[in-house]
């Protein structure tokens, strides 16, 4: 992978949320939602981000989009650090980076027509002089986008409540495409959809990627969905990435004990396969990310833990076959 291919480079990204006591008291504690995440995405690639609820997947996406002001780290989009960027520079960068959200009911303004929703990003950038598009051209573009995502252009004047969940998600996707971005951050875009609709939307994402050369950061908690859509997958646990690898390798040969447990817990829709599977059942729940731990964050639930896992934190390191894994089973403590 050459340097020029790199579109997004995230280094040691941290997002800590203060937990306040009462109104006047000082900040008492922090939730370490994302606690030092490193990864990069090259142009045209789909990076899957998978993990259980509360592991910091969505926070990572939002911190990249600068919807939160990250506590620390660097986020380079096409070589420019977004965290240090000025408001103007950030605006310019956002033209290149759009988001699709999970809940197609909450992410569309109920008082705007679908046409207005899709045109809104263009309008916003036009006001600031970053896009130059006439009224007719904008109309034309909205209609093209609607048809591209599988909605009739005659639905332009309808309101979100007149659409089904799958159709709403298509509106959200059209809106994300309006400014012709290179990177789309997809935060659980198919989790709220039924199975038959989910596969339609997944295929739409794939088609759009080929057609427009898009790059995706694709978040989901469903491992099979991630496997289908991604080129590479990062597995998160408690605000940290524990493993990154090519999608196929990860499923064939998961290295981190957490990845292994996660994969074995995911049900497979085939009774014959299910009857022969041996599950690794993890004990306990995901701990709360309210404190930083000296050792491995997975220590309490790990079946292969060793003594030094409790006192030293493993870093994400490359193994021979291109896997990156943060576990002392694969490299020695420093």
């Amino acid at each position: 992978m050459s340097k020029t291919d790199l579109l997004l480079d995230v280094r040691n990204l941290k997002m800590h949320f203060p937990v306040k006591g009462s109104f006047l008291s000082k900040t008492q504690n922090y939730i370490y939602a994302v606690d030092g995440v490193d990864f990069s995405i090259s142009r045209g690639e789909t990076m899957g981000l998978v993990g259980e609820s509360g592991c910091g997947k969505s926070t990572t996406a939002r911190a990249i989009a600068q919807l939160y002001k990250p506590t620390g780290g660097e986020v380079y989009l096409k070589g420019k650090d977004l965290i240090k960027a000025s408001a103007g520079e950030l605006m310019e960068a956002r033209k290149n980076m759009q988001m699709v959200f999970q809940d197609p009911y909450a992410s569309l303004n109920p008082r705007m027509t679908s046409g207005d929703i899709i045109a809104e990003p263009i309008r916003i950038f036009q006001k600031r002089g970053l896009v130059d598009m006439g009224k007719d051209a904008m109309n034309e573009r909205v209609e093209q986008l609607m048809e591209r995502v599988g909605l009739s252009r005659f639905f332009k004047n309808r309101y979100p409540h007149e659409f089904s969940g799958g159709q709403r998600q298509r509106i959200g996707i059209a809106r994300a495409l309006a400014l012709q971005p290179e990177l789309i951050l997809c935060d659980e875009p198919v989790s709220a959809l039924d199975v038959s609709i989910q596969s339609q939307i997944l295929n739409l994402f794939k088609d759009l990627q080929q057609e427009f050369g898009l790059t995706y950061l694709f978040i989901a908690h469903d491992l099979a969905v991630i496997k289908y859509i991604s080129d590479r997958v990062a597995v998160m646990y408690l605000g940290l990435i524990v493993e990154i690898s090519g999608a196929k390798d990860l499923y064939k040969k998961p290295l981190h004990p957490y990845t292994q447990a996660l994969l074995s817990a995911a049900p497979i829709p085939d009774p014959k396969v299910e009857a022969q599977r041996r599950r690794i059942i993890l004990t306990g729940d995901v701990p709360s990310p309210d404190k930083q731990r000296p050792g491995c964050y997975f220590y309490d639930r790990c079946s292969k833990r060793m003594d030094h896992c409790k006192t030293q934190r493993p870093r994400l390191k490359e193994t021979e076959d291109g896997h990156q894994v943060a576990c002392f089973l694969y490299h020695d403590p420093e």
Binding site: V195, S196, S199, Q200, L202, K206, A224, Y228, Y251
Partner: peptide
């Protein structure tokens, strides 16, 4: 048939396109 084919699977090399049932419920 369509439902079973439209679920992505972990244990299969699904390099080909996922089947999807057209239209809405």
């Amino acid at each position: 048939k369509g439902l079973i084919r439209s679920v992505p699977r972990l244990d299969v090399e699904n390099s080909e396109r996922l089947y999807s049932i057209q239209g809405q419920p």
